[in-house]
Write a protein that binds this DNA or RNA. Sequence first.
DNA 1: TTGAAAGCGATACCAC
DNA 2: GTGGTATCGCTTTCAA
Lengths: 340, 340
Amino acid sequence: MAKRSVSIYDIAKLAGVSTATVSNVLNQKGNYSEKTRELVERIAREQGYVANFAAKSLRAASTKTVAILTPDVSNDFFSTLVLDVEGRLRDAGYSSYICNTANDSERESAYVQGLLSKQVDGIVYIGGTTHSPIEANVDIPVVHIDHTGSTGVAREVFVGNDLPRLSYDMTATLFDRGCKHVALVSVSASLYRTAEHDQAAGYYAYLEEHGIVLDKNLVLEGPHRQTSLLEAEHLVSNCLEDGFSFDGVVALGDRVALGVVNALKAHGVAVGSDVRVIGMDDSIYSRISSPAISTVNRHTAAMSERAITALLEMLGGAEPAQTHIIVGHDVVERETTLGA
Amino acid sequence: MAKRSVSIYDIAKLAGVSTATVSNVLNQKGNYSEKTRELVERIAREQGYVANFAAKSLRAASTKTVAILTPDVSNDFFSTLVLDVEGRLRDAGYSSYICNTANDSERESAYVQGLLSKQVDGIVYIGGTTHSPIEANVDIPVVHIDHTGSTGVAREVFVGNDLPRLSYDMTATLFDRGCKHVALVSVSASLYRTAEHDQAAGYYAYLEEHGIVLDKNLVLEGPHRQTSLLEAEHLVSNCLEDGFSFDGVVALGDRVALGVVNALKAHGVAVGSDVRVIGMDDSIYSRISSPAISTVNRHTAAMSERAITALLEMLGGAEPAQTHIIVGHDVVERETTLGA
DNA sequence: TTGAAAGCGATACCAC
DNA sequence: GTGGTATCGCTTTCAA
């Protein structure tokens, strides 16, 4: 039905004006009479004219498009951020490419290469640990969310939580509820987070600060061989079966926490009283679990807001006000720390 | 660091050859000597040359890019499909735009308009109920996954399950396990699925076929006011509190099933024995629930495979072998129908 | 207020 | 084997 391709030239011919005038009218720039405007607009509509983006951006050397890179859109924490970022960019008149890198640096290289070729105006990098070597040559602004470690890009901004502080608060919450022996469970999210070290730091810091001797048997770290949920379940089961005991668990992630809760329940432990558990991310998992899991809200909306503000500043040619932005976090207590 | 923009012309000048030759070398087309190849490739690399996609596709009138439209990437069922589709397209040499429509037809119109302008070669439409009026004018191939109802596009293919059959099998599973009074719970997924009617059809068909009188009090349908999980929880709670009883529940969706299970547990019902429950989608929710929820695997991998095959056929200019493709489904029984 | 024409970067045809 | 050049669709001076 639709024409093979209606160009601005076709419209110009039909309207009996020049392409320059059509362009002006359609972009509401320059001068033209009301009569011309009506004529051109009507014909464009009739012909189902759609501006050719390639031609446009070839000329303009700007695409009004940014790329959102993330390791895993199917992860609740990331998908929330991705959608939020995408929405804000759309509001600002930008389109987004959403790219799922799966933390595969080869794939990431291919993406970045492609994006550069597609002349994206900027990049939003959410989570992730890998760094494409190509990235060092990127000359467009980059914003990182929940992701540390510079890529060597000229203009980049980091937005995230104060992770050591966050895990410190998680740990404190458990001790404040009376726990004496608190375990740390971390599924080596090398797959997802670059910040294991930072995340665990607060746990160690709390213990040290309060003169509590670290029991290494209670530091459960697993590789990301399977879903973090199952991995965590195994770690905790093994720990219990090996006869170690604890009355609190800091779980680095809600999926991890859910695995912990499942393992505890399977061993007949009363979660929320015998053992208290706190997760992180305030995701859907923490809410659908029963008992409901205490967790930490990481203010993702604030993250994306700050990130996009910074990106837009850079896209506008300005220097960003700050290059390292820390957003707050809130401990959200539910049944696993408060009891039923 | 990187040059403002290195064009093929710059490379040609530096290499002392013509742009035509550079183009040939870089695209491995036409003829050129080994010596020229080396020279050109070296200089291109040194200069960090990246082909300008806009210029390329302006000329080629093809972008090797397709759009993936879906109502909600954060929904497990859809995100699985999106990632799968994206991967297959990448393997076939296509890039994807992932677009989250939120079932907002206005936003969808804006997207489709933008995509047309960006000259995407095709569209993959996953789920969703709305239809942009613009779509009728689309002259590129469209593939629909889990989504019925034509858009009036010239070249379109539908891929999905046999939904009436699917809900028939769900219902049969419960009766086969000895249930006598089976309820149907559906959170008017108008937000997500266009196919409520088809989905419920199998339930009615089974009853009728087996001479079972329909008890309308056991057909629980709610709007999608809140998350389907909570909505389902309320529906079931209300039903129990109103004194109606049942020993089986067909839940149209795993999130719905999870809500049902939560409500039953809250009312002290033994799920899996007193009342059996079956969900649909075989998503993470059915596995993380305790008791684990029986569900239906919808063969999403097969869906995306068939869909992309059909799309590639159309992109290649061929007529698709079939325009309506049905993929199979499997009932997966877990604790909520088998018992503990 | 309008138009002619240059040019964005890459490709492809056709000469050489 | 290599190069000149028209062309894709649009924007943007600069003149008229």
